[in-house]
């Protein structure tokens, strides 16, 4: 029963996601700008053997593709929490809570929807990157793997924002709190900048940053090839965090009332 409940909560979100044409357009244009502008801009800057060694590739575009992928998913996950604030405002949350569905299905459904949205946006990004000349060292299976990692990562973020939204009732406060975490998460990771080139303290921070753990395996299989020895720790961290966040989000809705 809970599977069906989760499914219908997710279905509602996805129906609205794919219906909002403007928002869809933005999700396409944004990565296009990131990859097209920033990727090309940096291209000249990185054309020297020293930087190439740090990046592990001569193409900054290929280096930053996993970063842009994760960044998009990261900011997309925030919307899951916002949708709860909105549902609370229009009274829909009350409707869900009054229905005989499992309460855990509310955050879990929204997390699933967020993961599917993340996968869809990720697919667009990979298509754009391919159009710009980026090739996976591991080919098509590598691209699928990248999307699965990105979707798993989106569960962490959406779960986090949902757990917060179970308590935070105002849109502005939730936005502020979530941004307080997402911005530093982004910039203390190796998403756009190689960890090898960071000062020691930042490299240590980056080492603990979940974004890094999501970027590392994708970058590995994009630039070099399958090397499970190099990525299993990161996969474990991401998978473990995703499961943890599912529990945290579910738990925070078990006790929530409309008070």
């Amino acid at each position: 029963m809970i599977v069906a409940d989760v499914g219908y909560v997710a279905w509602r979100e996805l129906l609205k996601f794919f219906r909002a044409k403007t928002r869809l357009l933005v999700t396409v244009i944004q990565p296009l700008l990131w990859l097209g502008l920033m990727g090309n801009m940096m291209e000249g800057l990185v054309k020297n053997p020293f930087v190439e060694r740090l990046l592990g590739t001569g193409s900054y575009l290929a280096f930053m593709t996993p970063g842009v992928l994760l960044m998009t998913v990261l900011f997309g996950g925030v919307f899951a929490g916002m949708s709860i604030v909105w549902d609370r405002r229009i009274g829909y949350l009350e409707k869900l809570l009054a229905a005989p569905i499992s309460r855990a299905a509310i955050p879990l459904g929204k997390m699933m929807a967020s993961a599917v949205q993340g996968g869809f946006q990720g697919l667009l990004i990979l298509l754009i990157a391919t159009g710009l000349g980026v090739r996976f060292a591991t080919g098509f299976p590598g691209a699928i793997f990248a999307l699965v990692v990105a979707m798993t990562f989106s569960l962490i973020l959406s779960g986090f924002s949902l757990a917060l939204a179970a308590r935070i009732k105002s849109q502005e406060t939730l936005m502020a709190v979530v941004n307080f975490f997402t911005m530093p998460l982004m910039f203390t990771s190796n998403a756009l900048f190689p960890r090898e080139a960071m000062p020691g303290w930042l490299a240590t921070l980056a080492q603990m940053n979940p974004v890094t753990h999501a970027v590392t395996p994708i970058r590995q299989i994009l630039l070099f090839g399958w090397d499970w020895g190099a990525i299993w720790v990161s996969l474990l961290v991401i998978g473990g965090l995703a499961i943890l966040m599912m529990f945290v989000a579910a738990q925070s809705f078990l006790r929530t009332t409309v008070e």
Binding site: M1, Y8, R12, G91, K95, A98
Partner: peptide, 26 residues
């Protein structure tokens, strides 16, 4: 239960609102 606030999802059709509600009641 129909709350004081009209809890209809604006971005769904009337039928979709009703359909979801039915699904939430299994």
């Amino acid at each position: 239960y129909a709350a004081q606030e009209t809890a209809v999802d604006d971005h769904l059709t009337g039928w979709e609102n009703l359909y979801l509600q039915g699904r939430f009641y299994h």
